[in-house]
Nucleic acid binder design. Structure first.
Length: 777
DNA sequence: TTCCCAACTTAGTAGCATGTGC
DNA sequence: GCACATGCTACTAAGTTGGGAA
């Protein structure tokens, strides 16, 4: 087995997880940085106004004053211009009403340098329309919305208690789809049953628990009653059959059960790049030895002499056998899983049966840290009942531990939402079993999150004006805070907590950016004051972006960089706590991450407004593009799917064939027309019609394929799911759809009065209703 | 005021289930 | 009915936030 080189090859280009092309500090450098930082912190604590800093600040304040003298006028002029532009934009939007022409802005190829940030003379801050157009209503409209809904649903009986089992949940999912189906054109005519089920569905839906219409507790309690069956523990280890052998240095070696179990964890990952990483192998070996008998320890002294191949082959064969199982066998397993789900997958919380998110305790295995994680490969030990804390109501039926065991603790804390917790051994952090996202408790939180983002919308311009003002502050800490906030707002950067070195991969967010993570270019190509960002963010995903900033930001950054080493903090007078405290003062409930939610949702709204395509494939493409714009903003990336190249090739083949078919059919149409010209008989006329329709059909098919190809290509390395799930207020998509329906109705009348071809109208109508909502959970 | 940690959200990926085309 | 592609979900790592102890 090769040593430590595997990690150096596989990551995707600029949008990749940490790879070797990205500069990492060596240990020495790391140590130096640590020491330097400590010194700096000590210094900071003792002499926050140290002479040196005072001197350098004063020097720069003076410089800045000088610059301000010269630049203020131009900034004001720029502001005036901007105001004018904004006014004009608003006027235009009023005129345009809800219908906006034009394609969504296309992202630049590298997926990072977005047009919206890179326009040559950028409006420093994104400007949002004042009007809501019903898409992202301001809070003042919210009440109205709620009232309207209440009025619409006055027949609803909220007191009805409803519990839900898994089958019903599944059925409900199906029914939801059926409801969707009701407004879609019936694609699958074969499914006649769906119609009948649809009626049932409506009845069932009426009984859905509308928790959002109920009062929320104000005392901080999350529930009043909680009962569950406890977690599903990982199955005990099953020793390998005798024919599966382990070899050390070419010789057969029978391992003890504990050592064998840990060896199987490694063997199962043998095809994975992880097992080639030196850090992974080192950590694994160290922890593996802890499980060995003293005899094994004395024999096994070098991991590179271990041969796990037979074990690996055995697990592969098992996996293959699972795939080859008969239908009945598969059904049995499915039924057993369903039984477990029914038993452990639900709890009763305040008279409602709620789905649990992760009711299984994480099984033992090897820790898969992301990026250059110093603990990758360490043994995640088996969690026993004695490690587990149960949280439930005093008056509930407490979950029973397996026979002969006991829980670590049974707790009755209704100030928290978790049902089960345990402490994992890698980082010493607490893991939880919590409810499914569909639960009241999660839904409420989600709702609150978007409400906070909407409140931010109301005051974001004030906040922006404030931080722009703060760029000029006499205090360095205020300037740093203001510039950091500007980055968070404009680039949707994460807050960036400080991390314990040596415990996790070296990743940063806004507040923890270091000097080495940015480069300043007074002029780059035809743009002025460009900042280049290059750092590893959450999950060691690389963030790379070049952005022109306002002159004042640029000058401030120059100031922050002065007399600093590459490994020093860019914002040495700022951390997430200071920043959030400041934000809290500006708006109740405001934290750094609210900006991400807000900017993601507002971006989706703006992009969707431009979604004017009329046919389904183009609509889907446009929606995905809007979604993609958000994913790019939030830097949500993924490794290109393994089958990407192949599937693109297949799609291209289909497109080529379709093009050939189209040109052949066009020729046939031409021939039919010629024949009809000559004969003028009914048969040839019919033939022309048939061929014309065929051409039309093939054209549509071709367009669909081409759209698919574009969509897939654009989506190659961008993960849409995360933003869809966590950042995009679902009401925006719904409102956008409603706006479309309104627009359609209007179009209907216009077309009617213009006596437009009724066939076309019907066509458009069905398309309108066929645009499904994005797959919200 | 700082540090630490519990509690929660956000994140990418592996693998399974389902759909599609032949 | 099969093979392959695709989408979805479970899983769990890695963040953020806020509160309490030192």
């Amino acid at each position: 087995m090769s040593g430590d080189h595997g990690e150096r090859d596989s990551q995707v280009n600029s949008g990749s997880r940490a790879n070797d092309t990205h500069k990492h500090k060596d240990k020495h450098k790391e140590h130096r940085r640590k020491e330097h930082k400590k010194d700096k912190e000590r210094d900071k604590a003792k002499h926050s106004n140290s002479e040196h800093r005072e001197h350098s600040e004063k020097k720069h304040r003076d410089k800045e004053k000088e610059r301000v003298k010269h630049s203020d006028g131009s900034v004001d002029r720029h502001r005036e211009k901007q105001k004018e532009k904004d006014k004009e934009k608003r006027r235009e939007e009023k005129v345009k009403s809800s219908h906006v022409e034009g394609k969504p802005k296309k992202e630049k190829e590298n997926g990072h340098a977005r047009e919206m940030w890179n326009s040559p003379s950028p409006p420093a801050i994104k400007s949002e329309p004042e009007e809501d157009n019903g898409l992202y209503p301001s809070p003042k409209h919210n009440k109205t919305l709620k009232r309207e809904r209440d009025e619409e649903e006055f027949e609803y009986k909220p007191k009805k208690i409803k519990t839900e089992n898994g089958k019903k949940a599944k059925k409900r999912k199906q029914e939801y789809e059926d409801e969707e189906e009701d407004i879609k054109p019936k694609k699958k005519t074969k499914d006649k049953k769906a119609g009948a089920d649809g009626k049932k569905a409506k009845k069932e839906t009426e009984e859905k628990w509308k928790w959002w219409e109920e009062e929320r507790s104000t005392d901080g309690s999350k529930w009043k009653f909680l009962e569950h069956k406890g977690p599903v523990l990982a199955p005990p280890y099953e020793p390998l059959p005798g024919h599966v052998r382990f070899f050390y240095d070419g010789k057969l070696l029978r391992l003890s059960a504990p050592a064998e179990e840990v060896a199987t964890f490694f063997a199962k990952m043998l095809d994975h790049e992880y097992t080639t990483k030196e850090m992974f192998r080192k950590n694994f070996y160290k922890d593996w030895r802890k499980e060995m008998t003293s005899e094994e320890k004395s024999k096994i002294t070098d991991i590179n002499k271990c041969n796990f191949t037979e074990m690996s082959e055995y697990f592969k064969a098992q996996s293959e056998a699972r795939k080859q199982m008969s239908k009945d066998e598969k059904l049995k397993i499915k039924e057993e899983n369903e039984r477990i789900l029914q038993e452990y997958g639900f709890c009763v919380m305040d008279n409602h049966k709620e789905r649990i998110g992760n009711f299984r305790i994480e099984p033992p295995g090897l820790f898969r840290g992301r990026g250059d994680h110093p603990k990758m490969g360490m043994l995640k030990r088996r969690i026993r009942p004695e490690d587990i804390i149960i949280n439930c109501s005093k008056d509930s039926k407490h979950p029973k531990p397996p026979q002969g065991t006991r829980w670590k603790e049974v707790r009755h804390d209704n100030k928290v939402t978790w049902l089960v917790s345990w402490t994992e051994n890698i980082q010493g952090s607490i893991k939880y079993i919590m409810l499914n996202p569909s639960s009241r408790i999660k839904g409420e939180k989600d709702w609150q999150k978007y409400e906070t983002a909407r409140r931010l919308k109301k005051c974001v311009e004030r906040l922006r004006a404030q931080y722009r003002e703060d760029w000029k502050s006499k205090e360095m800490r205020v300037r740093q805070r203001a510039v950091a906030l500007y980055f968070i707002d404009k680039l949707a950067l994460r807050a960036g907590n400080e991390k314990e070195e040596g415990e996790t991969a070296d990743t940063v967010g806004c507040c923890s950016l270091r000097v080495e993570h940015i480069k300043l270019y007074p002029k780059m190509d035809d743009q002025e004051y460009v900042v280049e960002f290059d750092f590893l963010g959450k999950d060691s995903i690389r963030y790379y972006n070049k952005m022109p900033v306002e002159k004042r930001v640029f000058k401030n950054l120059q100031l922050f960089l002065e007399n600093k080493q590459p490994e020093d903090d860019l914002f040495d007078r700022l951390n997430t706590s200071i920043l959030n405290k400041h934000l809290q003062e500006l708006m109740d409930g405001l934290t750094a991450k609210v900006f991400r939610t807000y900017n993601a949702s507002i971006t989706l709204q703006q992009q969707l407004k431009e979604l004017t395509s009329r046919d389904i494939p183009a609509k889907i493409l446009s929606y995905n593009r809007a979604n993609r714009a958000v994913a790019i903003l939030c830097n949500h990336q993924r490794a290109a799917p393994k089958t990407f190249e192949k599937s693109m090739q297949n799609l291209q083949t289909k497109i080529d064939e379709k093009q050939k078919q189209l040109s052949a059919t066009r020729k046939q149409l031409k021939g039919a027309k010629t024949e009809h010209k000559a004969s003028h008989d009914d048969r040839s006329k019919k033939m022309v019609e048939v061929k014309r329709k065929a051409v039309q059909r093939i054209e549509e098919q071709l367009m669909k394929l081409q759209m698919q190809a574009t969509d897939r290509e654009e989506n190659k390395q961008i993960a849409l799911g995360t933003s869809k799930l966590n950042y995009l207020d679902p009401r925006i998509s719904v409102a956008c759809k409603m706006l479309y329906i309104k627009f359609l109705i209007l179009s209907y009348f216009i077309l009617y009065f213009l006596r437009t071809d009724s066939g076309t109208l019907q066509h458009n109508h069905s398309i309108y209703f066929s645009v499904g909502l994005p797959d919200q959970r």
